[in-house]
Design a protein around this nucleic acid. Structure first.
Lengths: 335, 335
DNA sequence: TTGTAAGCGTTATCAG
DNA sequence: CTGATAACGCTTACAA
């Protein structure tokens, strides 16, 4: 079924059919109805390629995420996809992996598909050296690029994120105010967001006149899904003489390892040993004791970024940054 | 940059450029090199729409899943996306939600995009009444439809799944052999897979001459991510006079609720009270005690389905069903 | 209000 | 080995 078939069967020209399909302005009601009937009868739907060729757009936006099986990113994708659909756009997902090359490639592919925009989910897309961020700048020359949970200054790039610095600053302060003095920061990512979290932790320690020891920032390189591995990593740190009475974690996976570590060491949680997670995922309530965690409002951020995008695509001017404040959710691993 | 620009700059016709871009057979090496140089110099890449228009294919396959934030489905998507990319295809993801209408719509959208195939992730796409499955049959007339974790008889529909019946039959038998007599089956989905799991449980109970009480099949309707809610649901069941000494769960989320229930009731796990999860997700090791669970080999299934798809798209004949056997992973909630 | 015809950027079929 | 040229199915001036 092509537009030609329909036009023939309805006894009109293809232009009229096209008008009916689209704005459908300036076409006599009867004619319109006749065409509509034929369209319905034959279940016609226009060829997306041909349409795209002419209009050079597909009403589609690309979504890139490093790993969609990461619980936190999956949630974000879910919300974004939903919002996008509600706004009449389609989402094309690409899982790029964590390597720069994969990211570049994914972006390239999407650009070739003439998507109206690309949403980058997570802060892993930003690098410390400017050169590695060039691929984003380049893409932004063609279409608006949306960063979910990342902060980047560049024309035509829009960001929505939670203030990670503030988050760990506050959560660390919270731990300190509850009596912890030797707080370990456990992290497994040096992404932009990861560095912000680390900085927030450090800043809070300094503000409370607590020593900032290098060994108290523990970088875990293994499999984040293996609580066992994380726990034994912490054990090694402990055995090496670095002791602590609280752990500030960069995500809930790390925290699950911390909980396990504390249990194995028979540390008294939360009275003598506190643990703070991050992301407030479902893991928090699966943990025993239940995990306190920082809620970085992923649902709100996702909604914001899509809303901003839609406005931009409608030609409106929008602020380039939306920042939301985190919230500390206190459960059973903190006092 | 279009093929015309390139042809002009290289001093050849567009046909030659096209040949170089594609099979590139039958073109003089020097000419080829010249074209290649120009292409590289100007960073030309062909327009996907125009190409699609001519070829009526995009080397893309659609992926539909009800909810990509479901941990288990997210893993499946991850593997499928990966395999697809390796095979030179792109994945277009749609989250359809759990309603039939949403699923139909998602499929329609993908079909309009002329994807080469659609992979349906999860068993929620199959309904008990044949009429509701018509949308799949219809789509299968156009392109091959791949079912991940579902079993459906229809031409041009290919399935790869874990034998859920066998899985719960075996896991229930396992619980029985370890001394449990009153086993509750806790589930939250009546999808095809859900029904198979239920049947496996029932069959095992019968085979061991244990009574099959209606109340021992507990259907939880709430939020699967809320362990608290699940636990209090179980509490209600218990309070209503239905007691049990083991729980066979339809997924690990349910099992997390069961663990919580057991803890609140101070039931002795696993000696006097056993819990068996399903899907073998990361939750198993986040649980305390660690959760025994049925591994339904999602990675293997995902690999299989994509491999089958690729062969089919290459014109080969392939078996319509691939069935893998589950494996019981014994941890700390079973003897 | 409706129809005609020119693009949109490829691929593929012919001739040469 | 290479170059015209006709599809592919649609949108959109421009004409009527």
């Amino acid at each position: 079924m092509t537009i030609y078939d329909i036009s023939q069967k309805a006894g009109v020209s293809i232009a009229t059919v096209s008008r009916v399909m689209n704005g459908s302005t300036n076409v006599r009601p009867e004619t319109k109805q006749r065409v509509l009937d034929v369209i319905k009868e034959y279940g016609y739907s226009p060829n997306a390629f041909a349409r795209g060729l002419g209009l050079n757009t597909m009403q589609a936006v690309g979504i890139i995420c490093a790993d969609c099986s990461d619980m936190f990113l999956a949630k974000a994708i879910y919300y974004v996809e939903q919002e996008l659909r509600n706004a009449g756009y389609e989402g094309i997902l690409c899982c790029s992996g964590y390597d720069l090359e994969g990211k570049k490639e994914a972006l390239q592919v999407l650009l070739q598909k003439h998507v109206d925009s690309v949403i980058l989910i997570g802060s892993h897309f930003l690098y410390e050296d400017d050169e590695s961020n060039e691929y984003i700048k380049t893409a932004a020359k063609t279409i608006p690029i949306m960063l979910l949970n990342a902060d980047f200054d560049c024309p035509n790039v829009y960001c929505a994120f939670c203030d990670d610095f503030k988050a760990t600053y506050e959560s660390t302060s919270y731990l300190i105010e509850n009596g912890s003095k030797r707080i370990l920061h456990l992290y497994d990512s040096t992404s932009y967001s990861g560095r912000r979290k680390l900085a927030g932790y450090q800043s809070s320690m300094l503000a409370h006149d607590l020593p900032l020891e290098k060994e108290m920032c523990a970088y875990f390189k293994g499999d984040r899904e293996s609580a066992t591995e994380i726990a034994s990593f912490l054990d090694e740190v402990w055995e090496s003489g670095v002791h602590f009475d609280a752990i500030s974690c960069s995500n809930d996976y790390m925290a699950m390892g911390a909980v396990r570590f504390a249990r194995a060491r028979q540390l008294n949680v939360p009275d003598e040993f506190q643990i703070m997670g991050y992301n407030n995922t479902v893991l928090t309530t699966c943990s025993y004791p239940e995990l306190s965690s920082v809620d970085n409002k992923i649902e709100m951020i996702s909604g914001q970024i899509v809303q901003t995008l839609v406005e931009i695509l409608n030609g409106k001017q929008m602020p380039q940054k939306t920042i939301v404040s985190p919230e500390i959710i206190c459960r059973e691993t903190t006092k």
